[in-house]
Design a binder for these strands. Structure first.
Lengths: 130, 130
DNA sequence: TATAATTGTTAGTTTTGTCTAACAATTATT
DNA sequence: AATAATTGTTAGACAAAACTAACAATTATA
């Protein structure tokens, strides 16, 4: 019985897959390799693990397709990323780069509830200070 | 040449070692095993890795002593933990338990600069709203 | 359409961190 | 002091993620 949850690492792959498909209609392994700074071999491994957990459909030499389960997870993580970045940028006044860097690590570990509160707080705050 | 940086996992061991020594004057492996919910064997491994990186002094069947380097790192992480908990509790109004849970994961990944800004923000905010 | 370049896969290795089970050392109890 | 209980270590497995090097498939180009 395989574990169905995603590690931070696999969430990053999924996020990247989703974003590329959104913007370009498709993704290739070489592109994930470039954007995530990992070897092509590591991408192949990750694609197999994601497929095993049903977040994507993938067969050797085939195209990478994201499943509805994958879309759900990806949008969830990306939503967190967006709000966290906004919080660090608008509330704490960090550069976009550092805001995004922090968002990128925290998005994988923050609890649902904490995120919800942070989201409300950030939106309140941004409303008042814009 | 061994890597001198600490993973999240090893930081947790070090934090636990430091806190126990502070409160009780010493720690035993069994206590770390209990508090961190890992086997005694895993603790032995972790102690060797921490000793190799010079964060603690340790020899088989010997007592666990934290080095000055270890104290520096532990207090840094604990400092982050404290402020992050305060932020989640006082600013976002989470329960102490959930505040601490989030602090526990974020303390290992937040950048120095982001932490500094968050600290200032939290102290400002707490000052105004107490 | 051959050939060359690019992309993807496989096999084998490494590191980190975990586990269990068996054994050794230490500490407590009778 | 001898025995029992607790604590610590070792050995051997396993899983997740990464790597390189060699090879296979695909795509582009001469």
């Amino acid at each position: 019985m395989s574990d169905l949850t995603l590690s931070s690492g696999l969430e990053d792959y999924l996020e990247c897959i989703y974003n590329n498909i959104e913007h370009n209609g498709s993704v290739k392994a070489i592109e994930l390799s470039r954007e995530l700074n990992v070897s092509r071999a590591s991408v192949t491994d990750a694609l197999h693990r994601l497929a095993e957990k049903k977040y994507i459909n993938y067969e050797r030499y085939g195209s990478i397709e994201i499943t509805s389960k994958g879309i759900e997870k990806a949008t969830e993580v990306i939503g967190k990323h967006t709000i966290l970045t906004k919080f660090f940028e608008k509330v704490l006044k960090l550069s976009n780069e550092e805001a995004s860097e922090n968002a990128c690590s925290i998005e994988h570990v923050i609890t649902q509830n904490a995120f919800k509160k942070l989201k409300d707080f950030t939106q309140q705050y941004a409303g008042k200070n814009d």
